[in-house]
């Protein structure tokens, strides 16, 4: 009887197990090809793009988006969205700015308080989504507007302006700025430490996703929530953890932008949440969850940074940037849709 079983399965047409097929099947392959294409195009088309100063510019541009895109990608693989991710980057920076300049709080303490508040809001997002069963799209849209309003109102109320001034005069400013805002000049190119953070975040996220139990659970809760529950995956813990990761990443980006420019606007980050989602989707994440990669999202952000600065270097009208992004998003979604149909269509 064993032989017949084996026969039925062995004779079924199977997907070829060749290395090339396997590479093509990975979520980040499309983004890698696109990134190379964009890089080659602008390197040939402009003279400044592939120089050290040029690279410093587009890497810097990509890095903060990259950190957020990676966190948002994890969240999307886990089946959720966080529309408050953009405004959170401004919010965390404002908390530090206000605590230090208005209340004289030690800058390190302020940064830690800011992180704690961010994580708490992330946890609240996750808890509300899981308890009510409402789409995270709606819940975090609410958080987004609450925070955006509070950012503006509180900043104006306490400082009388819409931006934080005088950060550099705060004691120990330099000690913390070294971690988030420092830079290194190599051959005339300025390379910010945010690029290092971006790479570190991507490596950690990839490790977690592919090589830890938590990563397994992230794929599972995004791919099939009920099934995950049935086999004992801690669904609540995983999802809340993902929302906290996103807000934690937003804190990191908030600190980077605060200490790189030594100021922060009350509307910083507003509208960027969609760019994170675009980067994640271009990087191969499915909007429906359960599929994607951290490296892909990082590459998505790299493409964003290169296109953004490439358009400037080429002296084109930068107003077209969003149009280019939208087109890229649509292309990526079509590609992903096709991949998913191949993965799940199978022999039903």
């Amino acid at each position: 009887m064993t032989t017949t079983d084996i026969m039925t399965i062995a004779t079924r047409p199977r997907v070829e197990n060749r290395p090339i097929r396997r590479i093509l099947g990975r979520p980040e392959t499309g983004a890698l090809v696109a990134a190379l294409a964009v890089m080659i195009f602008f390197s040939v088309y402009t003279t400044t793009f592939l120089t050290l100063p040029g690279a410093g510019v587009w890497l810097e541009s990509a890095s903060t988006f990259g950190i957020m895109a990676v966190a948002v990608a994890l969240l999307m693989i886990g089946g959720e969205f966080d529309l408050s991710a953009g405004v959170m980057t401004g919010f965390t920076a404002l908390v530090v700015g206000i605590l230090t300049t208005q209340f004289g709080v030690n800058i390190w303490v302020a940064a830690i308080v800011s992180l704690a508040v961010a994580l708490a809001i992330g946890a609240l997002n996750g808890y509300v989504v899981m308890r009510t069963g409402l789409p995270s799209f709606i819940v975090t849209l609410g958080t987004f507007f609450v925070l955006a309003g509070a950012d503006l109102a509180v900043t104006k109320l306490l400082t009388g302006q819409v931006a934080i001034q005088g950060m550099t005069k705060v004691p120990f400013y330099d000690s913390i700025a070294a971690f988030f805002g420092s830079s290194l000049t190599i051959g005339g190119g300025v390379f910010y430490i945010s690029v290092v953070w971006w790479i570190v975040v991507t490596i950690i996220a990839t490790w977690v996703l592919l090589r830890t139990r938590a990563g397994n659970w992230i794929f599972a809760v995004g791919g099939a929530l009920n099934s995950s529950r049935q086999v004992g995956v801690p669904v609540m813990k995983t999802k809340v953890g993902l929302f906290m990761t996103t807000s934690g990443a937003a804190w990191l980006v908030g600190m980077i932008s605060l200490f790189r420019t030594s100021t922060v606007q009350a509307n910083t980050g507003v509208g960027q949440e969609f760019i994170y989602i675009i980067c994640a989707v271009v990087g191969g994440c499915l909007l429906t969850g359960g599929y994607g990669s951290a490296v892909g999202a990082a590459l998505g952000a790299l493409i964003y940074g290169m296109v953004f600065q490439g358009i400037t270097f080429a002296q084109w009208d930068t107003n077209w940037l969003r149009t280019v992004l939208g087109g890229m998003l649509l292309l990526a979604v079509f590609l992903n849709h096709w991949v998913r149909r191949r993965a799940t269509g199978g022999s039903r």
Binding site: T212, R213, N216, F219, A220, G223, A224, N226, S227, S228, Q230, V231, G232, V233, G290, Y291, R340, A343, T344
Partner: peptide, 24 residues
């Protein structure tokens, strides 16, 4: 074993096999 089998279609067979009780 429920009707929906408690499997996650997009995950590899081996990850599904050990889901919730992964070996580390």
């Amino acid at each position: 074993v429920y009707q929906d089998l408690a499997v996650v279609p997009l995950m590899p067979v081996w990850r599904n096999f050990f889901l919730g009780s992964e070996l580390t």
